[in-house]
């Protein structure tokens, strides 16, 4: 017998279930008075640097119906391409930009919405710049483990063409599933869990 490596196993994921809004955005689903406000609702304030944008979208199931019980979280760099995180070693991010947002799907339309800023460029591990992008994480009833993906911008064709992550997508017709539609300042990013337009999800 060799020595034990002694590593622990990651706690297994379970679905967020139909009532994830109770836990993550209680005010949004009428449980008021517990928290002053839901976390992740305000990414920017009047002093945040950068170009103001709005991202809306819906998450669709394999039958083309929008999910009304999903929660989408986003994580992105500030306008200079820095993350507001202790693990960011390249400099100090804009203190007026959290970089993280939480968007509950609307109970009627299924739409999520983020008022944020256009992120700057962040380097890939080998130093090449990645195109501006927003990282997303999606949970809902029926999703056994949260799904990671990225939003890229439709008006960054040149940067997108040189992006090292988009370049990894083997079936080139799927690249478009990661590129938002719309025009500044309002971008639309619909996520398809299945079907011919299935979004590229990441194992990261």
């Amino acid at each position: 017998m060799a020595q034990s490596l002694g590593y622990l196993k990651e706690t297994p994921s379970q679905t967020a279930g139909p009532y994830v809004h109770i836990g993550l955005t209680p005010n949004f689903c009428d449980i008021t008075g517990v928290y002053p406000q839901d976390l992740g609702t305000a990414l920017v304030n009047e002093r945040t640097q950068g170009e103001r944008i709005v991202i809306t979208g819906r998450v669709f199931d394999g039958a083309g119906a929008p999910l009304k019980d999903a929660v989408v979280e986003i994580w992105q760099a500030d306008a200079a391409g820095l993350y507001n995180s202790p693990s960011e070693t390249r400099g100090s991010a804009d203190p007026h930009f959290a970089g993280w947002g939480r968007g509950p799907a609307d109970a009627v339309t299924g739409e999520f919405r983020f008022e944020t800023i256009k992120p700057g460029r962040v380097p890939y591990p080998d130093g090449r710049p990645m195109a501006p992008h927003v990282t997303l994480w999606i949970v809902a009833r029926g999703i056994n483990i949260g799904l990671h993906t990225r939003l890229y911008f439709p008006d960054e064709a040149q940067a997108n063409a040189a992006d090292p992550v988009l370049a990894r997508i083997e079936h080139r017709d799927r690249v478009s599933t990661l590129i938002a539609t719309g025009t500044a300042p309002h971008y639309v990013f619909d996520i398809h869990l299945q079907g011919p337009q299935e979004t590229v999800f990441f194992d990261i």
Binding site: E88, V122, M130, T135, G142, Q194, T199, F202
Partner: peptide, 19 residues
Amino acid sequence: SVLRSPQRALLSLGSTLSE
């Protein structure tokens, strides 16, 4: 989960600063 499960393989990505 039947209609809410991605069916294509996930894109394996060595994590970048964004992750």
